[in-house]
């Protein structure tokens, strides 16, 4: 059986016939060909599949696409401006070299954007605690934490 799913992804209306059991991450990667959203653990622990749904960070490997019916989805491809200018969080990750292999980075950036929205002036401890849904197998946390702290300061102005 299939079902019609429609949503907005990175500002663009998209729609497809999918199997009911299609996970949101598979819809994003395989139907929309937006492969910046990664599948790491596939068990909702590592956070590499993090996207925003209606402004909240969620794990796209742990919901079916139909749960996002009518929702506004933001993936890493939609974070920078159309001309390629990085957003504040991406720029801070670049500046502080907050990545090693880069696999966890899309999820880290989207999770960090949600984190700073909820904690505009986060302490290092708060960042580490609130980032516990994202794992970096390179263990590059130190610079990730620095980048998030710097991005939060820039956003506060």
């Amino acid at each position: 059986m299939t079902v019609k799913v429609s949503m907005t992804v990175n500002g663009k209306a998209v729609s497809a016939e999918v199997e009911e059991r299609t996970l949101l991450v598979n819809y994003i990667r395989e139907n929309l060909r937006l492969t910046g959203t990664h599948v790491g653990c596939d068990t909702a622990q590592c956070g590499a599949c993090t996207v925003h749904m209606d402004g909240r960070a969620i794990k796209s490997c742990n919901i079916v696409a139909m749960q996002a019916e009518g929702a506004d989805i933001l993936t890493i491809e939609g974070v920078a401006k159309p001309d390629g200018t990085l957003n504040t969080m991406q720029e801070a990750f670049r500046e502080h070299h907050a990545l090693q292999c880069g696999f966890c980075t899309p999820g880290m950036v989207l999770s960090a954007m949600d984190l700073v929205k909820n904690f505009p002036d986060p302490s290092e401890r708060e960042i580490r605690e609130q980032l516990d849904g994202n794992l970096c197998r390179c263990t590059g946390y130190h610079n990730i934490v620095k980048a998030i702290k710097a991005a939060a300061a820039t956003m506060r102005g």
């Binding site: 956070g47 919901i63 849904g133």
Partner: peptide
């Protein structure tokens, strides 16, 4: 409970 992304769902 769990982590931030799970708490959002």
């Amino acid at each position: 409970i769990a982590d931030r992304q799970i708490r959002n769902m």
